[in-house]
Design a protein around this nucleic acid. Structure first.
Lengths: 338, 338
DNA sequence: TTGAAAGCGCTAACAT
DNA sequence: ATGTTAGCGCTTTCAA
């Protein structure tokens, strides 16, 4: 049913122009709406385009306009995060949103704070702007982007004060969840396990925790905090530690850490929430499936991605944009902390 | 430490040529190695490029060569699969592999068997070839790609007999795992839960199962098979059914289904493997974390992605490539079936 | 071995 | 309102 003739040369502006006996400039204008074109010509052109099944060669357009209609998305491809649902969901939000505005999404890999791939893509000039999905403390990427004068948005706080960011209210979320746990569970010992402090998001989480503990006043339980926890082995040691200290409530930095924790607890016969309570500072579908389901902060990664994309595209189109946008969260109180 | 002057015009072929007092044709040849250039000139050029920090404008190169150095990767963005680790890991394998060969990766979203986004990208001519990460029974994408004469590779079996595919040995894997379970557990009732039969991979799985049951001869236990299971609700009903039938061993089509199953079983107090055994036809990090860890087939999605990328790039470069490549699997026998 | 010039398919400045 | 023309930065014929 397709009206494409296999192997045939693609129809281009000139073909439309010749067919209609007008110049390709006029055709170009009719399409873009940029110059003045009579209503009649415009309609003729648009009709003809449909009939002849024309669609512009975006590479030629890119070349001429010096605008690629691509954005690059930097995704971590190292260690534990490699399979983290957040980045996948975020990427989908970005991709869908871009498609709506006729942009495309180029994937750029990042290992730790390496910038090799980002640099390669920037030098190729294949993108108009960049989204950083995991800003790091080092700010290497932001530095490079600033040097090369490429617009970018970070999903989460950046150490670059000039960065345009779209963030979730991690600190507030963590504050509220911690406060809730302090109020409602009266844990005598509270544990916090957070991943690499290289990641700005983990700093926000930690700050929220500290504030909540501070605000709790004199009723603060003993607390044990583990920062920069990475990999299964470290995690195992940390949990052993917490259990030895008779910790009665563990707050996990994200869904992956939390799954490890829940499963390790199960493997040594500890029951949630009877023996120990568990909560996560980042929800994903998996935490909801657990039995019991795990209390968690929910942030909607897809929306974040979409918002980041819209923000970046607005910047690219010269629209005014806020320097910092914060999206809210839901606190999902589930059985694991009841 | 960057030697980039912010806002400055990028250095281009002409600059190198003028600096060296030669023509840009020669410079171009020195870089590409396509024409004959004297060793001396070549070295001069390469040096100068380094010193002046030149890197080619890939859009101009694309335009001229009619070759984008991009490949498109179609990723499902619908229902349960949206967060499936397979696609993320596969994409990473693809991206890393492409980067090594100086290609980039454009993400294309697919909902069910929709081809809107694929079509949009193809019409834009932004990619040289496509990787389909979830081939469907309908073959819509393959049809479109064939019509438009765009090279592609499918990760998994395609219904298009002409498709170049890189597949995991799903059928064989499922055969072996099922056989193993039949031999070693002597389940009196065996359950199989598989996702949408629109997906070719699920058909392979089913075929493997059927063969294994056939090969088991007269010792076959009662078996209950659920195909096309989709969403939590359906899954819940299916599991209820299996339990009512006193099923003693459940084979799950993939990691996501399996996690639902494991968690549902836990929530009603069924113990694995004591009360019921569980295995998955697709492993992911999550299944390994469970307590007890879940027996599963392991397929290394990253390698698959990398292989798919290499295959496609070889095709684009005119190299001979096998029409079908099959990667092996590991059978991870873990506590859930002991 | 090297260079001059045309051309890839669009957009945009300028002219009418 | 429309057309003419130049030009984006490369590659590639063709000629020397």
């Amino acid at each position: 049913m397709s009206n494409i003739i296999p192997g045939s040369r693609n129809v281009q502006l000139d073909d439309i122009a010749r067919k209609l006996g007008i110049s390709k400039t006029t055709v170009s204008r009719a399409i873009s709406g940029k110059g003045r074109v009579s209503e009649k010509t415009r309609e003729k052109v648009l009709d003809c385009i449909r009939v002849m099944n024309y669609s512009p060669n975006m590479i030629a357009k890119s070349f001429s306009e010096k605008k690629t209609y691509n954005i690059g998305v930097v995704i971590p491809m190292d260690n534990m995060e490699t399979e983290a649902p957040f980045f996948q969901t975020c990427l989908m939000g970005i991709t869908k949103c871009c498609a709506l505005r006729n942009y495309d999404t180029l994937v750029i890999s990042a290992e730790r704070d390496g910038i090799t791939q980002l640099k390669r893509v920037l030098e190729s000039r294949k993108t108009d702007g960049i989204i950083i999905t995991r800003p790091l403390q080092s700010g290497n990427m932001e530095q490079l982007l600033t040097d090369m004068n490429v617009p970018y948005v970070t999903v989460g706080q950046s150490t670059d004060p000039d960065a345009v960011t779209i963030d979730s209210a991690h600190q507030e979320g963590c504050f509220e969840l911690t406060s809730y746990l302090l109020m409602n569970n009266k844990p005598n010992k509270l544990g916090l396990i957070i991943g690499s402090m290289e990641q700005t998001v983990n700093r926000s989480r930690y700050e929220g925790f500290v504030k909540a503990v501070g605000a709790a006043g004199p009723n603060v339980p003993n607390k044990t905090v583990f920062l920069g926890v990475n990999g299964e082995l470290q995690l195992r040691r940390v949990i052993d530690d917490l259990l030895r200290n008779e910790c009665s409530c563990i707050i996990c930095g994200d869904d992956i850490i939390c799954m490890y924790v829940v499963n390790m607890l199960a493997s040594i016969g500890k029951q949630i929430p009877r023996d120990i309570r568990v909560a996560s500072l980042y929800n994903s579908m998996y935490l909801d499936m657990y039995s019991p389901p795990i209390t968690a902060l929910n942030f909607r990664a897809g929306d974040l991605g979409a918002a980041a994309a819209n923000l970046l595209l607005n910047i690219l189109e010269g629209k005014e944009t806020p320097q910092e946008t914060v999206l809210g969260f839901e606190m999902l109180i589930r059985k694991s902390t009841m």
